[in-house]
């Protein structure tokens, strides 16, 4: 069977301690380490494993953004993707526009499966996969921790608040990955060299005839109210006394 598309977002590395700019105009991203959004990395790992099982022929990674996101696409290629597509734009896009762009890519690439992270750890929106599935009119399996393909259908286990939910759906479909889907492989040096020779095609956003809109205007960015460091107690007895004093035990 054909092809899997995986979406990679360039995002602030999850180890970075985010700081809000003093003037409230955003968060400090200058000089900060950027990586592939961790959930997207898991999505890619899953696609690669499906290909290694012989259940798909090709894994294509897609990223939308400035040329800087080529770095994340190269990481994807080094992990094992076959080729990459960059949709070039200077705009910072909302999930609805990202979904619209992805629909265009889907129309030309015709994948059997699109895998992406359930959320990006910068905006924490958790929307793009669902919106893509809606616009495409196809099934969605969100927050997936287990995925099995069988011909023209697939089964997914979803991590939901009540536990684990299993659904079955027809392909093509949109899958968003949760953390326990797999553990992504480490990229090895020779793979990084090899990735440099893999194809990376760039399309300008304008060519796709999509005009991004700002629907959600960010007026201000604040630091969250800080929790203060509290009191240290010496032992269990003192802890219980403290809880009793606060009417908590």
């Amino acid at each position: 069977m054909g092809k899997i598309l995986v979406c990679l977002k360039r995002a602030v590395d999850y180890n970075v301690r985010i700081r809000v700019k003093p003037d409230g105009s955003g968060v400090i991203t200058d000089g900060v380490k950027m990586s592939v959004n961790p959930f997207d990395e898991i999505a890619l790992e899953e696609a690669l494993r499906i290909r290694e099982k012989g259940e798909t022929d090709e894994v294509v990674v897609v990223s939308i953004g400035t040329d800087a996101c080529q770095q994340q696409l190269r990481t994807g290629l080094a992990m094992g993707a076959d080729r990459a597509i960059q949709v070039r734009t200077e705009h910072s896009l909302e999930p609805l526009d990202v979904a619209r762009i992805l629909v265009r890519i889907v129309e030309t690439e015709k994948p059997d499966l699109i895998l992406l992270g359930k959320q990006a750890i910068d905006g924490d929106n958790n929307q793009t996969g669902q919106m893509l599935a809606a616009l495409w009119g196809r099934p969605q399996a969100t927050f997936v921790s287990e995925l099995k393909l069988s011909g023209t259908t697939a089964t997914a286990v979803r991590e939901v608040d009540a536990g684990l939910e299993t659904i079955e759906f027809d392909l093509p479909a949109v899958i968003t990955s949760d953390l326990r889907l797999n553990e992504p492989r480490y990229v090895k040096m020779p793979d990084i060299m090899k990735a440099k020779r893999k194809p990376l095609a760039t399309t300008d956003l304008e060519e796709l005839d999509i005009t991004p809109e700002t629907r959600i205007k960010v007026v201000k960015t604040d630091s969250p109210p800080a929790r203060q460091k509290g009191k240290m107690v010496a032992d269990a007895a003192e802890l219980v006394a403290e809880l009793k004093q606060r009417d908590l035990a």
């Binding site: 968060v27 750890i121 905006g123 007026v219 960015t221």
Partner: peptide, 19 residues
């Protein structure tokens, strides 16, 4: 049409306006 929401795992809070 204006709300606050957390981003970056709650390390920043944005005030947003919708049309």
């Amino acid at each position: 049409y204006s709300f606050q929401r957390p981003i970056f795992a709650g390390n920043a809070i944005v005030t947003v306006e919708t049309p």
